[in-house]
Amino acid sequence: MENEITLPESEFFAENTKITIIPNFKHAGFQILSGFYGPLRPSVAIEVPLWLGVFLKRQQKCRIIPPAWMDLQVLKDKFEEERKKEEFSELDFYYMEVSSLLLAHAKEDIPNHVLICRLIQDLQDLRTSKIRNSLQKITVENLYANFKDIASIELQAIRRLLPATYDSIDYMRKTENND
């Protein structure tokens, strides 16, 4: 039971995504497990893992450039697309984790961060209701539900539930065929 991925763990995975920062200090570079990042020069943009960016940001040593999808207009378009489409629209797999980390630690680097925060929340609600809707359509004859482009945060809601349910149904079906 306990070896399932929890949300803090998936947040940990999300911290490995790359993000662009603009440092305001000089450094030869960081040699870490995922590779070498450097050299850092003031006002020269460089790509580092998210956790390193947040770590530096907390010490006021850099400015974070939010990812391209974390823009008000882009998110508004995504939201419209999401509303029209029946399936999930394409989004960063860790969109919720990355955005919540950035909104918590680098608010001042994100233009319109209040609106963006609200939009992402709305987006997540919308996507969660999509899971519900597609489960609504499942029948015994057609146990298939399309969860393409599902993101980590939505996966969380069904990660434990759906496999157990499908296993139980499978078990019942097997006894039916045995007769």
Binding site: T6, I153, Q156, R160, A164
Partner: peptide, 14 residues
């Protein structure tokens, strides 16, 4: 209970 745990976890995480 599995479902409720996921809901609670999401809430706690947020």
């Amino acid at each position: 209970e599995k479902g409720m745990r996921a809901v609670r976890e999401l809430y706690d995480w947020k």
